[in-house]
Simulated assay, not measured.
Amino acid sequence: MTATDTHAAWKGRREEAEDTLSADTAARLAATLDHPPAPTDVAPLLAHWLCFPPRAPHSELGPDGHPRRGGFLPPVRLPRRMWAGGALRFMAPLRTGVPVRRTSILADVRESEGRSGPLVFVTVDHKLRQEGAPVLTERQDLVYRGAPVTPPAARERAPEDTPPPGLWQRALVPDPVLLFRYSALTFNAHRIHYDRPYACEEEGYPGLVVHGPLTATLLLDLYLRRRPGARVTGFRFRGVRPAFDGRELTLHATPTGTGADLYAADDRGRTVMSAEVDAV
């Protein structure tokens, strides 16, 4: 059986899980985003990413800190895994202290060839419910890549068009403390986010990698800071390239008739992530 056949056999797999987001954990996310304490039983948007953390025993983690391949996700042998993007629809607020049920389906597995070698794309669909009522749906796109074979500088992409500056902007420098706090909130042991020697020497990055979900959360947070009363109904994001600690990250948002167009840019002005918000 070929690797392609093995991966295809994982399509359609289904998983059920239940968790409860505490008000304290939601407050810690708000603190990480630099928001003042605001007691409420409604969690911030995207706080559901703090639910359902991986619970693999320490002895079952791979060399990158992720749970070993297999189980629900296919046993892709390519060593580097990144969250490439996703799309969400929000039907109701996520409430703290109320059990949330997640149904996950492995919707697609496909192989491709990129500039740096083979790629495997995995798409997972999630549905979250509380007390039987839908809260949100989500599509997650994961990408697996091979080990680096050339120095990072040699792998830089050709110059690209940079979007115009957003009407709203926020600049910050992600530091190891921010990355640590988000890793702790999500129980994410992926070493590229906190182990600098591993990130640089094993995976060929120039620094610690900023979590894709953290960048997405910061982009949506920028919109909500400017439109605090908006009811967000949808959010889509796509990772373009990694962002790294110690380098300025600029968040941009431009309101539209139905929400906003957003993007994050690195210290060289290159797009790190693009996103769209739907709101009423």
Rank of each mutant, 00 (worst) to 15 (best):
R226F: 02
Y205N: 13
F187T: 06
H58T: 15
P54H: 08
T256F: 11
L29I: 03
P176I: 02
P206F: 10
P206Y: 10
H126E: 09
Y205R: 02
R68N: 03
D195N: 10
A184I: 06
Y194T: 09
D221I: 04
V177R: 15
R95H: 14
P53M: 07
P79L: 03
G65F: 05
R139V: 13
A260H: 10
V98W: 08
S104A: 15
R155N: 13
Y198N: 04
G234S: 15
L185E: 02
F244A: 05
E15N: 01
G207I: 08
V210R: 03
T20V: 14
A23I: 07
E201A: 15
D64K: 03
T32L: 14
P39S: 05
E60Q: 13
V177H: 11
H48K: 08
H190P: 04
A189N: 02
L29Q: 11
G259W: 11
D5F: 08
A216R: 04
R80K: 13
R80P: 00
H252M: 09
W168M: 07
F180H: 14
R95T: 01
G97W: 05
I192T: 05
R225L: 08
E131G: 13
Y144S: 06
A87I: 06
V120H: 03
P174H: 05
A189V: 12
A31S: 13
P74K: 00
I105G: 00
P44L: 01
P174D: 06
P74F: 00
A107F: 01
D175R: 11
T2L: 08
Y223W: 15
A275Y: 09
L220I: 07
R102L: 04
D261C: 07
A56S: 09
P75W: 11
C51M: 15
R69Y: 02
P63A: 15
T254Q: 09
